[in-house]
Design a protein around this nucleic acid. Sequence first.
DNA 1: CATTGATTGCGACATATTTGCAATAATGTA
DNA 2: TACATTATTGCAAATATGTCGCAATCAATG
Lengths: 139, 139
Amino acid sequence: MASEIAKFTQILRDSSISVTTARLAIFQTLLKSDRPLKNGEVASRTPSVNRASVYRSLDLFDRLGITTTLIRGWTPFVELADPFKPHHHHLLCEKCDAVTVITSDEMERLIHQLAEKHSFAPSSHHFEVKGTCHNCQHL
Amino acid sequence: MASEIAKFTQILRDSSISVTTARLAIFQTLLKSDRPLKNGEVASRTPSVNRASVYRSLDLFDRLGITTTLIRGWTPFVELADPFKPHHHHLLCEKCDAVTVITSDEMERLIHQLAEKHSFAPSSHHFEVKGTCHNCQHL
DNA sequence: CATTGATTGCGACATATTTGCAATAATGTA
DNA sequence: TACATTATTGCAAATATGTCGCAATCAATG
């Protein structure tokens, strides 16, 4: 917890960007949540920070790779990225909206292999499979 | 081109959904574009159809698997899905915004293998790598 | 080509996101 | 610690996005 905040401040410092109370508050909101949040949810869970500033911070976090965005329907949800949450991917059930978290070493290997083939230097990646989960297949 | 439209009408018919001029117009907007579009862009490129109806159609297309949504920053972009565009994934350059399209049989195989492991029935998937493209690494 | 039910346009809401600018806070330095 | 400099924030107004109910219209079917 404390170490996440240290990591966070380090990332900002490394880019010569101020560590402000607003940014810390927003970061902690993300840290405390056990699920990805809509932008608006981040704002309402961080009442000490003005809505416009929340948006500005979320933009910044995205650019710095602190957060990633995933989409359900058309609504974007933000969550903390790799350095802060264990690396994972999603299986999204279209029937019941369940999210299954998966990991795969083979997937990680393949990603780097593909990137190399295209002389691409990967900084992050995200991967989603939509479909029907185990439970919903039997309803 | 004509065959895409045939495929499109077939999908609607198969679900007993009317093939209307509005839906065709929107579909053609997507077909004509060489890049994913924001919802609003779809609307402004299809002036013959009311904005509210564009949204309704895009919802429908998404549910029918005609389109997929991807996200840049926080903004959702729609593009035609697999049956209409060759199946592919993206390498997104964070410096110059270039999008490199990649394909990988091995990736496809791995996806199905992972899904099976979780008793998940995949209907679609999307995969993105962010990073620095070949050109921008040498600037 | 008439019937019927689905779809659309319209216009008014409701939300969400962005912007300019003055006030405030963070940083580096003495 | 206090100061100067610059980045960041809050605020309020402007845009942009997405949603809704309902009457008018259109597509499918026989």
